[in-house]
Computed example of a mutant assay.
Amino acid sequence: MNQNVGERELVITRIFDAPRELVWKAWTDPERVKRWWGPKDFTSPVSKIDLRVGGSYLNCMRSPEGEDYWSAGVYREIVEPERIVYTDSFSDAEGNLVPASHYGMSGDWPLELLVTVTFEEYEGKTRLTLRHVGIPAGENRDMAKAGWNESFDKLAEYLEKEKSS
């Protein structure tokens, strides 16, 4: 069954109590990304970012059980500090793309997804909107939504610490 883009799209909007420049840095500086990337109880031991159009990234999420989940992609558009558009794929530790089944995921995952993140100033805070296109509907999308929201909870905590330091 073919799904249209709307059915394969996850959209999450969050307000972060931090200036847009700080939220932007949290997304684009690998040392900052490592502090919040991944769901609750996951860590991010590796983040490599070549922040330019055509540049790539490689991130690792480590589960509480010590399993590593790698993702890689290429930046398609960067408008500092307003918008980042990049591809998103499962990968191995070297950044080679692998199918979702490599990590035991089921369903009709495309090899490459597209992520658009916008950063808007909002009453002294930042309204971040994430659009993740290509995630199969059902349990996969529910898991992705939960994972992103848990990551955003960690991002909010990180930004609170950064602001007060």
Rank of each mutant, 00 (worst) to 15 (best):
V79P: 07
P110H: 06
T87N: 05
D50E: 13
G6N: 14
R141C: 15
V98K: 08
R52T: 04
G55Y: 05
D68P: 14
I84S: 11
A72D: 03
T116Y: 04
S91H: 07
V33N: 02
G147W: 02
Y158N: 00
M1K: 13
M61K: 12
R62V: 00
I84C: 06
M61G: 09
K25G: 02
I135N: 00
G147P: 01
L114N: 11
W109L: 13
R141G: 12
T126V: 06
E31R: 12
L114M: 11
S91G: 09
I135M: 04
K125L: 03
G66H: 10
L10V: 13
R141D: 09
K125A: 06
F42V: 04
W148E: 14
K145C: 05
N4H: 08
E67Q: 11
G134D: 01
L97D: 12
E123M: 05
S71D: 07
S101F: 13
E139R: 12
L128N: 00
D108V: 09
S91M: 08
K34C: 14
R35Q: 15
R35Y: 03
R141H: 15
V79D: 13
S106V: 09
S56A: 01
W27F: 08
N2C: 09
P19V: 10
E21I: 10
I135S: 01
V117H: 08
D153T: 12
P30C: 03
E21N: 11
G107V: 15
I135K: 01
D88W: 15
A146D: 04
K154W: 07
G124N: 04
W27N: 07
Y57K: 01
D41L: 09
K34L: 07
G134Y: 05
G55S: 04
P45C: 06
A72P: 08
G38A: 08
A146S: 14
A137Q: 11
P136E: 10
W27P: 07
E121P: 05
K163N: 04
G66W: 03
Y86H: 14
E94C: 01
E67C: 10
E157P: 10
D17W: 06
E157M: 06
I15D: 13
L128P: 00
G124M: 02
S63I: 13
G73K: 02
G73Y: 05
V117G: 02
V53H: 02
V115T: 13
E112L: 14
I15N: 14
I15F: 13
K48H: 07
K154I: 01
D41I: 10
T28E: 02
M61D: 06
G38N: 08
G104Q: 10
T87P: 01
L130R: 02
P110L: 03
T129E: 10
R32D: 08
L155E: 00
M61Q: 11
I78N: 09
P19N: 12
Y75Q: 05
F16H: 09
K125M: 05
W36F: 04
T126H: 02
L58A: 09
S164V: 14
V53D: 01
G95T: 12
F16A: 03
P30W: 00
K145F: 09
V85P: 03
S106I: 10
D142V: 13
K125D: 07
M143L: 15
A93Y: 10
G107P: 08
M105A: 15
F16L: 14
K34N: 05
